[in-house]
Design a protein around this nucleic acid. Structure first.
Length: 510
RNA sequence: GCGCCGCUAGCUCAAUUGGCAGAGCAACUGACUCUUAAUCAGUAGGUUCUUGGUUCGAUUCCAAGGCGGCGCACCA
């Protein structure tokens, strides 16, 4: 793009850059040797005050700090500014009589968004803020495009932060996440919290003796969930391949192989709609424990949630979008059929398929064409019970038709040993006593194949290799999948899954 | 896929019934040696998402399209 085509603000910056280069300044430095970040500088000054080691002018330790220039207030022969680095914000005080005329004049070439390094002693201003009395400043990288900085004011009476202007266009914030992050420290905090969630899940499972593994994202057959896949092609093998919709079947192969406790934090890909709770690419934790059933892994799931909540938000109580939610153990437990029966006013097992369909139609549940008994039960549950599940609730023992990979319930008819954890009316986790009878598994696959040929494009595929693995012998196993993005949404009070994924899927720009 | 809402300066937003497209912040020029939404004076900055239509005249009305948000559907 030629200079003439650029808007005025962009042109100004390029002209400044050209002028800097003419003056012999390197506008894109190679490195900067800093001694402190904003946080360590502030604490070292506080320590010096405590030790009464400030000099006669009130100066504490000398520091070299570096960061992005985020605020500038010029006052003639002095100026105040803030830089922001990993440790927070740090104020700088520039004086012509301290820096000398030439260095002070060079500040004219700085813009908000520039990366700078400064050096000088720390002191406390009249208003009490720890500040660098800048003796020398170095431009580290010139910003050629203005960042959409807002301004924040602290309300004198309430003490609350008031935001002025700023960067609020959601589309631009998702597309230009770098700018969103650059001007919104609170967005950076969300993703720090996300990293902590993942770290703490690992720490918890490692502590329980689980082995972290990696299984294929590129799969010859997809499975482990009911979803449409992304299809791709391997050129040199000339073979169709799928991006995984789940890692479940691979993890259970590893259980067959003798790893008794395994887990994976995996990206799954599902070729489906995008909304507040769904991104086509998302992150799931799955873990499998040999010799355990779903009751055992339910206990483990509760403990894991407790551990993560404690580590990330310091407790089990939180507010999500204005609603108080408690992750204090034990979580509520309801049986799928009982909860549905209560909502229907009739035992769903005693209702015929036609009767169920009539009920669904009466509730204006759409898209019932070709829905079998399992799907009808699921639709009715989704319409009648799910919206009520705001507090963490384990929904137990689902209809067998819905769960082709789960073991039949040891006492109840027509259901499997399965639980899903719900909170804020969204599914957070899904688990079963894993089906380990290869003959039963084959029958379930065949039933899925029938559904598939009847037009259900989410029906499970028959995975012969998985059946072969199970024939070698799979120990009784409990397995759990947890949607990490949704857990992060909850713990960080974010309304959309896009707010916890750095680069969410969007349509093409323009 | 359907419905509703939105798209105007770098950012956040105005614009009467269809009548010269404006403000705050950012930018630029100047003043100012403890400010913090610094202040004060001045200047500049526009493909009003795109295409087409109606009209003497369209940011405004109509049609189609694009992108986004929300809701619905889909997502066991």
């Amino acid at each position: 793009m030629s200079t003439e085509e650029l808007s005025q603000v962009l042109r100004d910056r390029r002209e400044k850059l050209a002028e800097l280069i003419r003056k012999g300044t390197q506008p894109f430095a190679y490195s900067y040797d800093r001694t402190h970040d904003a946080a360590t500088a502030a604490s070292s000054f506080a320590a010096a005050e405590e030790a009464k080691s400030l000099d006669a002018d009130g100066h504490g330790p000398r520091v070299r700090v570096a960061g992005r220039l985020v605020a500038w207030r010029g006052h003639g022969k002095t100026a105040f500014a803030h830089i922001e680095d990993r440790g927070g914000r740090m104020q700088m005080y520039f004086r012509q009589d301290v820096m000398g005329e030439e260095r002070f004049a060079a500040l004219h070439f700085l813009d908000l968004g520039d990366w700078v390094g400064v050096e000088g002693p720390l002191f406390r201003t009249r208003t009490g803020e720890v500040t660098v009395r800048v003796e020398a400043s170095t431009l580290l990288s010139k910003s050629l495009r203005p960042l959409p900085f807002g301004k924040t004011e602290v309300d004198a009476t309430t003490g609350e932060k008031v935001h002025h202007s700023g960067f609020s266009d959601t589309e631009a914030r998702y597309r230009q996440r770098y700018a969103d992050l650059a001007v919104h420290p609170e967005v950076r905090e969300v993703f720090r919290a996300r990293a902590k969630v993942v770290t703490e899940m690992r720490r918890f499972l490692d502590g329980e003796g689980f082995l972290e593994v990696e299984t294929p994202a590129l799969q010859p057959l997809y499975g482990g969930a009911a979803a449409r896949p992304f299809v791709t092609h391997h050129n040199s093998l000339d073979r169709r391949m799928f991006l995984r919709i789940a890692d479940e079947l691979y993890l259970k192969r590893l259980i067959v192989g003798g790893f008794e406790r395994v887990y994976e934090i995996a990206h799954n890909f599902r070729n489906e709609g995008v909304d507040r709770l769904h991104n086509p690419e998302f992150t799931m934790l799955e873990f499998y424990q040999a010799f355990a059933d779903y009751s055992d892994v339910l206990e483990l799931t509760e403990a894991l949630f407790g551990h993560v909540a404690q580590a990330v938000i310091g407790g089990t109580e939180l507010t999500y979008q204005g609603q108080k939610i408690s992750f204090a153990r034990p979580f509520a437990r309801i049986r799928f059929m009982e909860a549905l029966g209560e909502a229907l006013g009739a035992d769903p097992t005693s209702l015929s398929e036609a009767e169920l369909k009539k009920r669904a139609i009466a509730l204006h549940v759409p898209d019932l064409d070709g829905a079998g008994r399992g799907k009808l039960l699921d639709k009715l549950f989704g319409a009648l019970v799910e919206p009520k599940l705001v507090q963490p609730t384990f929904v137990m023992d689902h209809p067998i038709e819905l769960s082709p990979l789960a073991k039949p319930h040891r006492t109840a008819q027509g259901v499997v040993e399965r639980f899903e954890l719900y909170a804020m009316s969204a599914e957070l986790a899904n688990a079963f006593s894993e089906l380990n009878d290869p003959l039963d598994q084959r029958e379930r696959f065949e039933a899925q194949r029938t559904l598939g040929s009847a037009g259900d494009d989410e029906a499970h595929q028959v995975d012969e290799d998985y059946l072969r693995a199970m024939e070698y012998g799979m120990p009784p196993t409990g397995g759990v999948g947890i949607g990490i993005d949704r857990v992060v949404m909850l713990l960080t009070d974010q309304p959309s899954i896009r707010d916890v994924i750095l680069f969410p899927v969007l349509r093409e720009e323009e």
